[in-house]
Design a protein around this nucleic acid. Sequence first.
DNA 1: CGTCTGCTTCGACGTCGGTCGAACCAGAGG
DNA 2: CCTCTGGTTCGACCGACGTCGAAGCAGACG
Lengths: 128, 128
Amino acid sequence: MSKQERASATFGPVVGCCEPLVREPLSAEQSVELSRVFKAMGDPVRLRLLSLIASHVGGEACVCDLTDVFDLSGPTISHHLKVLREAGLITGERRGTWVYYRVRPDLLAQVSAVLAPAGCDELPVLDA
Amino acid sequence: MSKQERASATFGPVVGCCEPLVREPLSAEQSVELSRVFKAMGDPVRLRLLSLIASHVGGEACVCDLTDVFDLSGPTISHHLKVLREAGLITGERRGTWVYYRVRPDLLAQVSAVLAPAGCDELPVLDA
DNA sequence: CGTCTGCTTCGACGTCGGTCGAACCAGAGG
DNA sequence: CCTCTGGTTCGACCGACGTCGAAGCAGACG
């Protein structure tokens, strides 16, 4: 089972913790898992890629749409997409000539919940 | 005005964006700002430090409390605290012999809101 | 089959970042 | 003033990471 499959298997707590950061301290293992997600988002290009995919019409974006936005080579964009994929933040699917990426809103929601202040630990409702 | 001062000046949008990631794409500048925060949280030690400080009684923790938790040297812990400080996630204050750190819940709430799915863009209420 | 296009993988290069010991600074307490 | 303890800064080391061009792979299309 790959890292990506494990992350997308269920809707359960992917990042290994449900409670907000401010309520109780993270264990060493939880910190390692969660920090992987943050590290993936800790690059300007990747963060922008994520938002471009997330806000694209239809909820998905072709790689060719993304490459034009940046002044970077194709391999570099592909590398960043791979990092986001291995962090469980996006999924890629090939349809014919093109590859389409979409975000995993459940993981985004979980991370958002972990960061939320105490008293806001409810998982937001997904209207998708 | 230092980076830290700029981050703590007001309760306004510190990270340069208010809308959730999934609604509209981040600009290059917004991505750079936001990614700085995520990069700071993208290390297991720093993430755990953050949660230890945030969940500590009284909302603050002395450095001596934090050092014991990790199998790391003092300078290393100090380095990580500096990174978190420069990202605007925590503030430090010397009182006598000891230095106390506390989190900036407003920044945490903003980052949480940016990550939240569309339709959950309300800033959570701080009960502090 | 050949080729063209879209995307990924590979290998290399330069920079950044986490870690440590040593040195340094700030208060507290003789 | 001296010293002791708590933290930070400095300098060095080494592995991790972002970037690229070249090469490779997958479909589409003649």
